[in-house]
């Protein structure tokens, strides 16, 4: 479906690094034995599955900084806002809903970036990404603000798209 960006060696070492990190997290009270076993497991397990894990290899490690310090605060704020919105909707006896399916357009090229965007949209106030087709994402909006594609894109995806454009450059 997608073309690999990096060489196999690059992707293999990314898988090794990621598996080793995950292993340390899973076996948290740090001990040197777990680390030795983790290194062996990371090298063998990534031999079996590095093709499934990533397409852009070690480049992903650079993205973690942006992820932690820029994406995550915005995401948590939006998640809490979304939940207050849901709470207001559900606890209100009248349930003021005006649903509709709208279509938005993104400029993101990488499929992984588009998937991040779609998942972020699902967890932000009042929107649920139903389908994705190329650059268009179909969205179920619980209180429709605008049916125009450009305007809806700005309103729904604007804040995340800027971050993801920098992140997946």
């Amino acid at each position: 479906m997608e073309k690999a960006e990096a060489s196999s060696i690059n992707r293999y070492f990314y898988a090794v690094v990621l598996y080793f990190f995950l292993w340390i997290i899973l076996t948290y009270p740090f001990s040197i034995q777990e680390w030795e076993a983790g290194a062996a497991i990371a090298f063998t397990a990534s031999l079996l599955s590095y093709k499934e894990l990533s397409i852009s290899g070690l480049k992903n490690i650079k993205r973690i900084g942006i992820l932690l310090f820029w994406y995550l605060p915005v995401f948590i704020r939006e998640l809490i806002k979304a939940n207050l919105h849901v709470a207001g909707l559900v606890l209100n006896p009248k349930m003021p809903i005006k649903p509709g399916f709208v279509k938005i357009k993104t400029n993101l090229k990488s499929p992984v970036a588009r998937v991040w965007l779609a998942n972020s949209i699902t967890l932000t106030p009042g929107t649920l990404s139903v389908d994705i087709e190329g650059q268009y994402i179909y969205i179920h909006w619980i209180t429709v603000g605008s049916t125009d594609v450009e305007h809806a894109s700005e309103e729904i995806a604007g804040s995340f798209e800027k971050i993801l454009e920098v992140m997946f450059r």
Binding site: L18, L22, W23, L26, S49
Partner: peptide, 10 residues
């Protein structure tokens, strides 16, 4: 899949 695979090994 990556997470599930490693968790199975764990």
């Amino acid at each position: 899949f990556a997470v599930i695979f490693l968790f199975g090994i764990y």
